[in-house]
Design a protein around this nucleic acid. Structure first.
Lengths: 242, 242
DNA sequence: TTCCTAAAATGGACTAGACCTCTTGCGGTG
DNA sequence: CACCGCAAGAGGTCTAGTCCATTTTAGGAA
């Protein structure tokens, strides 16, 4: 098959991307795109240009690359409500199966940002709980929570895979989270992160930071979550300001 | 100056990125990074690899490229509260000067997504208002609003640069927005968009869609906004669910 | 001095290709 | 039939280079 580009003066990677997006619609489910080298020959561009286009499509969440196998269409995004609920509920509300894996759990000295958020002294002991969040077995996010050790001394023994942190706080420490401040921004993943997320090195991620407060208004937890931008969309319901 | 990489097995663009991030801290404000060709020679890598690293840093919001001039550090991000307030207020609350430019204003036939959001028939006439949002004169977002023509017949004459749409709705049509549903996701910008935004073609953007409802619960407006991911961060205050 | 122009320097957009790792599938071996 | 090994083919990484577009700068003309 030969499909040379009708060059319209737009950047070539963009033209290739449009052509590939159209091609996607004609594929059977589970069928990969033609190999990069074939596409390069067919379109009359270099393989680098094809890779540039596909990298953009990966970032846009249209396709995923499987090393050694091929480039495949991907299923639609997971919806993540911006609300004060647990990851478990957010995901299972969509009929997907949420799981968590504890990557690491240890005591560290708090850095400046964490200390400021939790209103403790810089360098004081905090738990650092790093978890991998999955939907239907596929990695969606890396979540790194920080909580003061002196308030939650036994947390290290109370957390395991698929344990809800908020449930532990409620049942073991009688703490209910009542308010949170959250920020959202884009970034590029670090190698450590995209390794855990099984994602492409060029994939943009959504970085969410959240500080959670209890019923007395005291900061309980400071979280930094890194979501695969190609696999989720945040939603929020906005109401008038006081 | 010669700073060859102490290759640690990580991807070279990542090593270069770390080295450049460190270098950033030593720069005087307003001073550019060394030219790409110089960095390539200094680090002992190809120029493509340096460009790859810098592209990641642009996406991460650390630097900006100026064609023909150099690659410069960039100021910190604009905070955008996820709340039911106007763009004007969000930006001016941070001591920045918000302006808007009407890119186009015309009547179109509504597409499926817009029709569903506004609860009108597919193909019915809607205003399509495309505006460029700027802070201190720098492009931040492209905002494309859709409103039903039959409810707002004279909107075309009532909107100009720096006009607040919500003020027109309130003063001319006695409509107050009381609720909105918003989604956030990442994407890559189209050439049209990054031209307007004066951004890099590889820059990820935050795509926000918002449907706004009036005091009677009727959908008033459907907006698709494309924000430069390197220039803003969204914030939200979360409260318990009903 | 001031202004214009041409050259130099910079980022932008590719191409062509080498070499790597990982997956897949085929064929031989037991 | 089951298993293993290997080769082909896929994506991953990186180099070296060409030519273009834009900005900056230096030098010459007025």
């Amino acid at each position: 098959m030969n499909r040379p580009l009708a060059d319209d003066g737009q950047p070539k990677p963009y033209q290739v991307r449009l052509a590939l997006t159209a091609l996607l619609g004609t594929l059977e489910p589970g069928q990969p795109l033609p190999p990069e080298r074939v596409l390069a020959a067919d379109f009359g561009v270099s393989r680098s240009t094809v890779r540039h286009a596909i990298t953009d499509m990966v970032a846009a969440g249209l396709v995923q690359r499987l090393h050694g196998s091929g480039t495949y269409p991907v299923p639609p995004k997971v919806e993540l409500p911006l609300r004060l609920a647990s990851y478990t509920r957010d995901v299972s509300d969509q009929g997907l199966r949420p799981t968590s894996r504890v990557v690491s759990m240890r005591k560290v000295a708090s850095d400046a940002a964490t200390a400021a958020a939790l209103d403790v002294e810089v360098g004081s002991r905090v738990w650092r709980l790093e978890r991998l969040r999955l939907t239907d077995g596929t990695p969606l996010a890396v979540e790194c929570s920080h909580l003061p050790v002196d308030r939650f001394p036994d947390l290290g023994r109370q957390i395991a895979d698929d344990t809800s942190l908020y449930r532990v706080l409620e049942e073991e420490y009688r703490i209910t989270v009542t308010r949170a401040v959250q920020t959202v921004e884009t970034a590029m993943a670090s190698p450590e992160q995209y390794r855990l997320l099984d994602a492409d090195s060029a994939a943009p991620v959504l970085v969410l930071t959240r500080t959670t407060y209890d019923q007395r208004g005291t900061a309980v937890e400071h979280v930094l979550s890194t979501y695969r931008g190609d696999r989720c969309r945040l939603t929020a319901v906005l109401l008038p300001q006081p």
